[in-house]
Design a protein around this nucleic acid. Structure first.
Lengths: 239, 239
DNA sequence: TTTTTTAAGTGTACTAATTACACTATATTA
DNA sequence: TAATATAGTGTAATTAGTACACTTAAAAAA
């Protein structure tokens, strides 16, 4: 590896955009940096990748160290590699997003993080490094993917109502959906199990509870199912 | 950067999946490796990223060194970072795909490449490193993106016939399309300029020539156009 | 020159999916 | 028991997708 030696002076990191859903709002988990650079600023949870660690494993590790959660939906989005994106040297970073159920999360901040906190997507501004750009890229990717894969369920508790599901999609897609059309579409996919239970303790007619049928989804996927949700109002191609 | 020093011993590379279209077939440009490791095997064109070079610039450089082409459609797909993917050290690689007009390309092989050659996608097997995996990932991404963005035109000469365009989509999507329905759909998008010219020197009725209207596309995109092509036969969601 | 060959070009009827839209039902709380 | 709040439901109109076969225009062969 003689002539390559000049190259082996870089590092890479993973950064994790952890999405959650709460109070009708799409949230992202940020940490307040306890050390320079960017001390005191909010940042995406991330870490350098160990020399003997696979990239995907590093992303899962970062997530687990912060939230205590394993086996979470995790997807690689993009790699950011501008020369000066990190003040301490050449560090490129691979961005992942993950989807977690916000109430399963318990704070176990890693040593480098002084504070972890959920932020609404819209309020997550002024982040350290190039993390604003990374967050936007991941959010756009989530928006795109949520239309064609049943990812939304990862963000909801195991039992949910159709209205909760609709609100989730509305929050992610930043659009309003028609209640009847949404239900018609979702139920026609035959991916929900009607639990024959209802909400309790709400000051109105209680909603029925459903569960995502992941076995059935795996079966349908093999047969070529296209899970697909369109926009509230479809833009037409016209002159 | 004291405690970080152990980390700054890695390198990263870019690998470029260069797609072209010729003789009704989707092709990929591969080089035969002239040096160890994997000497003599076909590989994706790629290179280590210089310490002071942005990732995207590196991808564009690799492409230009090999083909002489600049300002080509180039898109980052995925980053591959298994610990042992490169025998000479820890090297993660960022994969890009690019779309070029095959007749604009002239061979100018870089020093590390003994030979560059177009391969049909289906025949590009037994590549060096983890390049089979990378190629497949990029091909899947192209397939997906070609449905919702007018990328196909990047692969055709500026003037083309509707049949050529159809064959291109059939090659990429690995499906057959109905001639009348394809034409109806494409023309209804209003993205083609009818050049009022016809083919010459063909032993049959000459086809009309068209040009992609990129100005109009930019305008329509802002208004929310969804360029979208579906499969030949649509799988229905049913019980 | 006529015939053959090859691919270009065209329209319609049917089916499926999407959209817009408003009232009734059921629980709690006042 | 009245008020409030959200759940739950159907249909008609529009748009998009699909299946399908014959005529046209050029070059090449007879």
């Amino acid at each position: 590896m003689s002539e390559f030696n000049n190259f082996f002076k870089s590092a890479f990191s993973v950064d994790n955009i952890i999405f959650g859903f709460d109070e009708g709002d799409l949230k992202v988990l940020l940490i307040k940096r306890g050390a320079e650079p960017y001390k005191g600023m909010w940042a995406l949870p991330g870490d350098l990748v160990y020399p003997n660690e696979d990239l995907d494993d590093a992303a899962a590790r970062v997530l687990e160290e912060l939230t205590g959660l394993r086996d979470v939906y995790l997807e690689q989005v993009n790699t950011f590699g501008a020369v000066n994106r990190h003040p301490l040297g050449r560090v490129i970073t691979v961005a992942y997003y993950s989807l977690i159920r916000i109430n399963k999360y318990k704070v176990t901040p890693a040593s480098f993080a002084r504070k972890a906190h959920w932020h609404s997507i819209a309020e997550a501004l002024d982040l350290a490094f190039d993390h604003n750009e990374i967050l936007q890229a991941c959010y756009q990717r989530l928006k795109q993917q949520v239309r064609t894969r049943p990812l939304g369920f990862e963000l909801l508790p195991p039992k949910f109502t159709l209205t909760e599901l609709q609100h989730l999609y509305e929050a992610i897609l930043e659009t309003e959906l028609d209640k009847r059309n949404f239900r018609k579409k979702i139920l026609s996919m035959d991916l929900l199990i009607d639990l024959e239970e209802t909400q309790e303790g709400v000051a109105h007619r209680p909603a029925k509870l459903y569960q995502f049928d992941s076995e059935r989804y795996e079966k349908l996927k093999q047969e070529g199912l296209h899970f697909e949700l369109k926009e509230g109002k479809r833009k037409l191609i016209s002159t």
